[in-house]
Design a protein around this nucleic acid. Structure first.
Lengths: 164, 164
DNA sequence: CTTGGAATGTCAACAACACTGACTTACCCT
DNA sequence: AGGGTAAGTCAGTGTTGTTGACATTCCAAG
């Protein structure tokens, strides 16, 4: 039905898709489990982790930019940022060109927590990657990219390219 | 690219792992976006979706079994089940062998909602699978399985095998 | 120079979803 | 009869998300 060649389309059956859905569900639980354990002892939650992750990833990012990446309301992000700033993990600097904007940076303490969190998360990722092998990892990335909403794929690609 | 000792290990660099982490984050957002939109108009949330999904997947499952799969407290699950039962989407039957147990089933209305939700989710999954191709899908599944906690991998495998 | 709009921040109220802890009811099994 | 299991419930709490309303600051266009 698709392109007519003899390749089996069995991987597109409802049963295969359902298994993929369940795999995403269970895997995401594992994906967040280690950082969640660390954060549980700190009054922080997943939202704080996400903010810290992306501020570390793109230092000096504006609040608005972070808002678009995280996909939450400014009120929700602001609550998180306020605690991170008052706890001395994040620094907010008024923009030079546009003084309305606030540019966000991790402090040394913030970077220390970021390292702790991402070390834990990367350890699981590394072990999964190693167990699955490079070809599987390439396929993993390919499917995930195809699953994103287009705007999110844009944010993702921009981050990816700025990192190399 | 491949070094003298066989496979390149470049896919295990911190930068590659970080990209994988961000891919998981953005893809999971897409993964839940379509069902979330449907549920938003119905007083229901993601927790209801998960309960409906797994009751449909394993009809007659007990509350305890569902608890283990979902990894939440019974109070949290009970709140969700109570609304689903009183709204006539789920039916709870006292066990025949063990009358302490409650076996859970979807009603016709429950099945209708399940179909609506999983059609939406499968559509995105199917489009991602089709775009990525069968080999990528195999790798995707392999990495996700390796990322799960062992107990979750057990639940996942049991469900997977009961479905074929 | 005034004014409109953008970016940010703040306050208040609320809902969904998770948690802990304590307790009850019903039941199985030894 | 008693111990342990399955389920349900009540009360309290915390994180994260939402709307809506409003203030401040500032750039830029008229």
């Amino acid at each position: 039905m698709a392109d007519g060649h003899g390749e089996s389309l069995l991987f597109l059956t409802d049963e295969q898709l359902r298994q993929g859905i369940e795999a995403m569900f269970f895997a995401y639980r594992g994906f967040t489990a280690d950082p969640d354990r660390i954060l549980a002892n700190l009054t922080y939650g997943r939202a704080h982790h996400r903010a810290i992750h992306f501020i570390n990833r793109a230092p000096g990012t504006t609040v608005n930019n972070l808002l678009n990446i995280l996909g939450v309301t400014k009120q929700s992000l602001n609550r998180v940022l306020r605690t991170l700033i008052s706890d001395g993990l994040v620094q907010s600097r008024v923009g030079r060109n546009d003084k309305r904007e606030r540019h966000l940076f991790l402090t040394d303490a913030g970077r220390a927590l970021e390292t702790q969190l991402s070390d834990a998360q990367r350890a699981r990722m590394r072990s999964a990657y190693r167990a699955a092998g490079p070809e599987a990892v390439a396929g993993f990335r390919k499917v995930l990219e195809a699953m994103m909403d287009p705007e999110m794929r844009g944010s993702y690609t921009r981050l990816k390219e700025s990192g190399t």
